[in-house]
């Protein structure tokens, strides 16, 4: 095992400010007299992808990366990211997680077979690792303080409760790094975060029944007048008018059964039938 180096992880979604938050943590550790290394990945991942930052500190740090199962704390700015990175936390370590959920666009369509399932917000998933958990609603706390953008400082405050660093170093790091003019609200958010109580868990975010497979498009040609509304509103381009102005199904497999064409057909000429047997969705997509 590594000598004296300690580690923690910050994780969130691109655009949440994970990098700035980890700079604050690293700066506070540096001010407390530690050798510090902090490593994140940015670039393409920042475009709404999963963003994480490793922070290591001690008298002399080698690897900037935290070995699996060795982080003292994981601070997750988003629920699914807490789950993704929790294997880095050591037995009995701590998880600070914002219960905010950001469902990625790819998992946000229950009309397509590639739907993936967003995990329920449920603290019990950490039980097997004997982790200390702190599930907070940082957005709510920051909103109460008057600036929703200070939510990250609330999370840092909660994180700080698990680290033995003098408050003065934290405050100096925050004052030095947050955007000018927001020092006060961020400091207040940080202090609030140290005290903040566990959040009431939100309603489970489970998806409704999954996609049941391509639907059947039934056109009653003798009623169709070729107005073209259906083909223009179809999100999947299933329908087209041929050169004679006759409506045709050109991409039957893509029909998700949204029924827009049916609802917006002025001539009652389209009927959408669900497939006979629902397709069973695959297992939820796991990361890593």
């Amino acid at each position: 095992m590594s000598s004296s180096s300690r580690g923690l992880l910050l994780a969130g979604v691109g655009g949440q400010g994970v990098v700035l938050a980890s700079m604050i943590v690293a700066d506070a550790l540096l001010r407390a007299g530690h050798d510090v290394k902090q490593s994140e990945v940015h670039g393409m991942a920042q475009r709404g992808g999963s963003v994480f930052s490793h922070i290591r500190w001690g008298s002399k740090v080698d690897s900037p990366l935290v070995p699996l199962g060795s982080a003292e704390v994981l601070a997750a700015f988003e629920w699914a990211e807490a789950l993704r990175w929790v294997p880095y936390v050591q037995e009995g370590g701590a998880v600070v997680a914002d219960i905010r959920t950001i469902v990625p666009p790819g998992a946000c369509s229950d009309r397509r077979s590639w739907s993936t399932r967003y995990p329920d917000v449920d603290a019990q998933v950490f039980d097997c690792r004997h982790l200390k958990t702190r599930l907070i609603d940082a957005t709510a706390t920051a909103t109460e303080l008057g600036n929703v953008r200070a939510a990250n400082s609330v999370i840092l405050g909660s994180l700080a409760a698990f680290l033995d660093i003098d408050l003065l170093h934290w405050e100096a790091a925050i004052e030095g790094l947050v955007p000018r003019g927001t020092e006060e609200v961020n400091l207040a958010a940080f202090r609030a975060g140290r005290e903040v109580a566990d959040a009431r868990l939100p309603r489970l975010a489970s998806a409704p029944e999954g996609f049941s497979g391509p639907h059947e498009i039934d056109i009653r040609h003798e009623w169709c007048k070729g107005c073209d509304i259906c083909s223009r509103v179809c999100p999947e381009y299933c329908l087209e008018l041929d050169v004679d102005g006759k409506l045709a199904v050109v991409n039957a497999k893509a029909c998700t059964g949204c029924r827009l064409c049916e609802l917006l057909c002025p001539d009652f000429a389209i009927e959408i039938h669900p497939p006979p047997a629902p397709v069973v969705l695959g297992a939820p997509v796991l990361s890593r």
Partner: peptide, 15 residues
């Protein structure tokens, strides 16, 4: 290593 609890894939996306 402990397996991660099931979570959701999060590929990068356009802003």
């Amino acid at each position: 290593a402990e397996a991660a609890p099931p979570t959701v894939a999060r590929p990068p996306v356009l802003c």
